[in-house]
Simulated scan of single mutants.
Amino acid sequence: MRTTENEIKLVNKVSANNYKPLPVVLCEGEGIWVKDLEGRKYMDMLSAYSSLNHGHRHPKIIKALKDQADKITITSRAFHNDQMGIFLEKLCQVSGFSKALPMNTGAEAVETALKAVRKWAYEKKGIEDGEIIACTDNFHGRTISVISFSSEPQYKEGFGPFTPGFKLAKYGDINDMEKLITKKTIAVILEPIQGEAGVIVPPAGYLKAVRKLCDKHGIIMILDEIQTGFGRTGKPFAFMYEDARPDVLVVGKALGGGAYPVSAMISDDGIMSVFRPGDHGSTFGGNPLGAAVGMAALEVLEEEKLAQRSFELGEYFKNKLKELNSPIVKEIRGKGLMIGVEIKTEFGTARPYCEKLMEKGLLCKETHQQTIRFAPPLIIKKEELDLAISKIKEVLV
């Protein structure tokens, strides 16, 4: 008989120890609800780090997956397929850009953006040793190039030598960013809200200030909306709060509708034109199965007005959390249904509280030691949020 205890023992035996999940083994999911091997039911308040904005097994997305699987799944970019074009056209329409380069994972999309801006600098500005400014406490993935500009010591320990050409500015401090700009600076890369850092929201006007700074110095603005995109923060994309349209937009996670890994770098002709056949690619990027799923995910986003739901329910949820007036909580922050609850250090770390919430049927996860991240599927109902609040009250008050 398969049990939670036995499955965890098996994973510990055969898997690298690179994650520290909560001690729950999930085997079923529908909407905002999941079940473990013993049949216990939980509310998913993490959404696979915003991959499940549409909820588990959304009927339209699963139908698209199954229908396409009955036709053709993978072709590689050696040939055209009948799904990629219409999918990318829709993605460009939703995001407001003219071209998209499809990949699979978020880290791949970030790497694609880094390669694009470096080649752009070579060809358009004659800069062969360009520098890119990132922000402290960033999280853009775990490849060698990406961890090269991480400020988290653990992400880098033992993995050097690192990719050169990066500088770090203090997140939220536009003056610190401008001080780092030189003739070699070709781009800045940042998240509109830092998810892994603890749902850190920058000061109002910061994104617009970054946009103006990039325009002033003729450098590219890259926004990583892998976690914040597709309605998570209450807008289709978080940059829309400040009308701070980037030059390059990086997306992933929810683009795959919680069913298949789909990501993309999105931009306009001026930057995309630097790529020629053979410069960059991915065997699975833009494959018909992923494209069909991505198309369905984008259609559901619009049809069910998920961004608007996220804004309205996020405000409600955040206010209800604040009304708890918990003596344990230092701060509640976020936008839409991307909310961080920071625990005061004198009450320990966030992990034990996540474990207690799990026992009460809520699945969430700690990030950066002190913060509980609440990010339920955007399809969640108001009464389900009320149920979640009642459980949170039992643990935090």
Rank of each mutant, 00 (worst) to 15 (best):
G55I: 01
M43I: 13
I32W: 00
P23S: 09
C27T: 15
L22H: 10
E30F: 11
P23M: 05
S50Y: 02
D44H: 06
V14Y: 13
N17M: 05
G39L: 04
L46Y: 10
G39F: 05
P23F: 09
M45Y: 09
S47Y: 01
A16K: 13
D44K: 04
S50W: 01
P21S: 08
D36L: 03
V14K: 06
I8A: 03
W33E: 05
A48H: 09
D36T: 06
I8C: 02
D44Y: 07
I32S: 06
E7Q: 07
N53C: 02
P23G: 09
R40Q: 13
G39M: 08
Y19Q: 13
P21L: 07
K20G: 05
L10T: 10
W33S: 01
E30N: 14
L22T: 04
L10A: 06
A48N: 10
E30C: 08
I32H: 04
I32K: 03
P21W: 04
R40E: 10
M45L: 13
S15R: 14
L52F: 09
S15V: 03
G29Q: 11
K20P: 02
S15H: 10
K20R: 10
V11K: 14
V14W: 10
C27L: 00
K20C: 06
I8G: 02
L26W: 04
K41S: 08
E38A: 14
Y42S: 03
I8R: 12
Y19K: 09
V34M: 14
E38L: 09
K13M: 12
N18Q: 10
L26S: 08
D44A: 00
N6V: 08
V24C: 04
L10I: 14
E28Q: 13
Y49E: 08
K35M: 10
P21T: 09
E7S: 11
V25P: 00
G55M: 03
S50D: 10
V34G: 10
Y42M: 03
S47P: 02
C27R: 07
D44T: 02
I32D: 08
L26F: 09
S51V: 02
L26K: 06
G39A: 06
G55L: 01
A16I: 08
N17F: 08
N12S: 09
W33Q: 07
G31A: 12
K41R: 15
V24L: 05
